[in-house]
Design a protein around this nucleic acid. Structure first.
Length: 633
RNA sequence: GGGCGCGUGGCGCAAUGGCAGCGCAGUUGACUUUUAAUCAAUUGGUUGCAGGUUCGAGUCCUGCCGCGCUCACCA
């Protein structure tokens, strides 16, 4: 339960004074005739008009605006405030003469304060210093803020740049209290506007491609479609474990069997893995599947989709990311993983056709650092050669295609074109699939295939994956009989695509951490503190209708006794259980200074403080208090 | 999970082992065109938590909690 800080107590006092004056702190209705930016715009337009006409003064523009006070300073009988709504800021020019003594004093004495929401009516004007303002004739509190936001002052330079003083930048506080972060940091607000635009642009693009947006289950009896560990949950009524999806793939492809030509979904995936600057436990995924195209067709769509989205969000397909100019316009560089290795590392891995020989070669060249010799051949190529050695260099958008088969259970084999020239070529075709990933700014941005639609081949792949990765059972895709069943009815040839939308937003908003493009990134629950215990106690007491008073000063005790109950002879102190033992002497000192019974409460127990700590039953404790309380009335 | 770093009033930060300080915010007062307003006075601290070393700990040691970076894991 809330325990006001000093600053909050001051605000509570102001709120109380306002209420005593008959001011409604949280009126049900507010009104405005303009968004702030539009009011300013209207005034500027009128000014321009006036100048063009050569008339004397702009016609008066009467506005009502509403927003949060972000700055307030009083110059005696006149005060200035900046209020802000989503569209922007405007200054309020507040004079005693215009507002009347009563309302003006509320501002002057800061009963109406920074962070409060107000509604103001008056004419637009310019102050002597030239700032466009609302000359307020009426000012009305529409929501009182009890907790002050972190103070950020801004100085606007002549060149339009803004210097911030006293920023709110502690990363943890910003993520945990995102509302305060957003309220104070405009640039953070802008990121999430761009995020929304990104998703809208993707939808528009895919809709225009003739794809159907669908929704598939998040809770699934079987997970699949990617190599990742799932979260497990349980349905009580059905007595069934369910998984949170790790991908949409298998459900979306079933829909092609059902007769749709192309489907897509934008939604949340959940993966039970570590977090990093580019991984969050839940993240937004885009997948689409389109019949009658292969992975080359998907490449074309991918390039156009990224360029279109960047244009919609940033105004150009050329974007700036961490100081690098990145050009998303098609066409992108396309090369096979084999070519990429040849180009970057100067050898053909097909000359080392098994994991032992490849490892031996890499070790000889000093490139085996961090490589596990027991990995499969395909994994060495994809995760080590590509992931570790090549990926960080891929700044401009690059499509890397034709992946080893043992890493790609849902992709079709490479289709042999002309006659196979030699044995090495034959081996390459046999062991690779029509899959591509694409990389931008050194980050993997997505993954796509010519989708496997041969049910018997698919079944073999499931089995093959199980065999290859037997010791990582929970990361391989379980065999999904129903999916195979669907495929046996006939699935059109198709190309599929998956991409992490959060990473795309990072790219378009120039953010290095995925947490800065998620409103509520996953954070560990903070450890409870003594003050949390206190709050919990207050809440428990409130539920039992007990009035609890705070901070009884104790003569002789170093600390104030935190709480006591109305019976006046029962005190409660709070300690984390791991700190209890060392605190005993201190508690006993407190008990000696206190005439009643003293209890100490931990996360899960309550003790009576005596020569030793005597554990007491919670229910009994509360009951004895209730009785005292009733007796006291 | 491993390594490195950080944790000091509401926010941003300081303090060779020696009186816990500064700016902003807050409070009181002055000021009818200010804008990081200004001027005068002033409140506010269990230095993340717990133990230890020491005459003395924000500072050194140990453990714990949280966050960041990084490695591992992982599309």
């Amino acid at each position: 339960m809330w325990q006001p800080t000093k600053l909050e107590l001051e605000r509570l006092d102001k709120a109380e004074r306002l209420r005593a004056m008959g001011v409604e702190l949280y009126p049900a209705r507010a009104g405005r005739s303009y968004r702030i930016a539009e009011a300013v715009q209207a005034f500027l337009k009128e000014e321009e008009q006036t100048q063009a006409d050569g008339s004397d003064a702009p016609a008066p523009i009467e506005v009502t605006v509403a927003g949060r006070i972000r700055r307030l300073n009083s110059r005696g009988k006149v005060s200035f405030a900046h209020i802000e709504d989503e569209s922007g800021r405007v200054q309020l020019f507040l004079r005693v003469n215009a507002l009347g003594e009563g309302t003006y004093q509320q501002v002057r004495r800061k009963l109406i304060d920074v962070d409060d929401f107000v509604q103001a009516s008056g004419e637009m004007m310019r102050t002597r210093a030239g700032e466009v303002s609302v000359s307020a004739r009426e000012l009305r509190l529409i929501s009182k803020a009890l907790t002050p936001l972190p103070v950020v002052k801004e100085q606007r330079r002549d060149d339009g740049s803004v210097i911030e003083y006293g920023e709110f930048k502690d990363v943890e506080s910003r993520y945990r209290q995102r509302y305060a972060d957003l309220a104070v940091n405009r640039s953070v607000r802008d990121v999430f506007v761009k995020r929304a635009r990104t998703i809208k642009a993707l939808r528009d693009f895919l809709d225009n491609e003739g794809m159907l947006e669908v929704e598939t289950p998040i809770l699934q009896p079987l997970y699949g479609g990617a190599a990742a560990r799932p979260f497990v949950t349980h349905h009580n009524q059905l007595h069934q474990d369910l998984y949170l999806r790790i991908s949409f793939e298998l459900y979306l492809k079933r829909l092609l069997v059902g007769g749709y030509d192309a489907v897509y979904e934008i939604g949340r995936d959940f993966r039970n893995e570590g977090v990093s600057y580019k991984h969050n436990t839940e993240f937004t995924m885009l997948e689409f599947y389109k019949a009658y195209i292969d992975y080359a067709g998907v490449m074309d769509i991918t390039e156009r989709m990224f360029a279109y989205t960047a244009e919609q969000v940033t105004g150009s397909a050329r974007i700036n990311y961490q100081g690098e100019m990145i050009d998303l316009s098609p066409p992108w560089k396309r090369l096979s993983i084999r070519e990429a290795v040849q180009e970057t590392l100067g050898f053909d891995y097909m000359d080392y056709p098994c994991s032992q020989s490849l490892y031996g070669y890499l070790e000889g060249r000093g490139l085996a650092d961090g490589l596990d010799p027991s990995d499969t051949w395909g994994r060495m190529i994809v995760e080590h050669l590509l992931g570790s050695l090549i990926e960080p260099r891929l700044i401009q958008p690059t499509i890397i295609k034709d992946y080893p088969r043992d890493m790609s259970p849902f992709a079709k084999r490479i289709q042999a074109g002309a006659a196979i020239r030699d044995e090495k070529e034959r081996r390459f075709i046999d062991s690779h699939t029509e899959r591509f990933e694409f990389f931008i700014a050194g980050m993997e941005m997505g993954n796509a295939f010519t989708e496997l639609n041969d049910p018997r081949d698919q079944q073999d792949r499931f089995v093959e994956m199980k065999r290859l990765y037997a010791d990582e059972a929970d990361e391989t895709t379980p065999l999904d009989e129903d999916y195979l069943n669907a495929m046996r009815y006939g699935m059109p040839p198709n190309g599929g695509f998956g991409s992490g939308v959060d990473r795309m937003v990072m790219l378009l908003t120039d953010q290095v951490s995925i947490r800065d493009v998620l409103l509520y990134p996953h954070l560990r629950a903070p450890a409870p503190t003594e003050s949390d215990l206190r709050g919990q106690f207050m809440l428990d007491a409130a539920v039992r209708q007990l009035e609890v008073q705070l901070d009884l000063p104790l003569a002789g005790a170093k600390r104030k006794l935190a709480l006591y109950l109305p019976a006046a002879d029962v005190g409660v102190e709070f300690r984390m259980s791991n700190a209890l033992e060392g605190a005993l002497p201190q508690l006993q000192n407190m008990r000696r200074a206190f005439s009643g019974r003293l209890y100490v409460m931990t996360e899960e127990r309550i003790y009576r403080v005596d020569d030793a700590l005597e554990e007491t039953d919670f229910a009994e404790f509360w009951q004895s208090l209730s009785q005292l309380s009733i007796a006291g009335e």
